[in-house]
Amino acid sequence: MCLAVPMKIETIDKTEALVSAGSLKARVNIQLLPSLKKGDYVLVHAGLAIEKIDPRKAKDTLRLYRDVARKSMEEES
């Protein structure tokens, strides 16, 4: 039940939005997220968008993981 998936905002209609993952679309409630725009990615759980995904933080996290991994591999060789 804590299953939540990143989906992209296609259109917004007051408290609801049409979101997509690839070509799969669904309608979700967005009233927990004040300022959304088309193209934002949101985390969807049980029909509710619970948070916006921060692309900059996502990139930072990924870079951090890759650094740790790279350091690891360097130390090994």
């Binding site: 990143p6 992209k8 993952a21 690839g22 990615y41 995904i53 996502a58 996290t61 990924l62 993981y65 890759r66 740790v68 991994a69 790279r70 350091k71 690891s72 591999m73 090994e76």
Partner: peptide
């Protein structure tokens, strides 16, 4: 899938596991 696939790469995972 965006925000999913990047966080799954085998090479990075195994390297991190070795570090652990």
């Amino acid at each position: 899938m965006k925000y999913v696939d990047d966080f799954r790469g085998a090479e990075a995972c195994l390297a991190m596991a070795r570090r652990i």
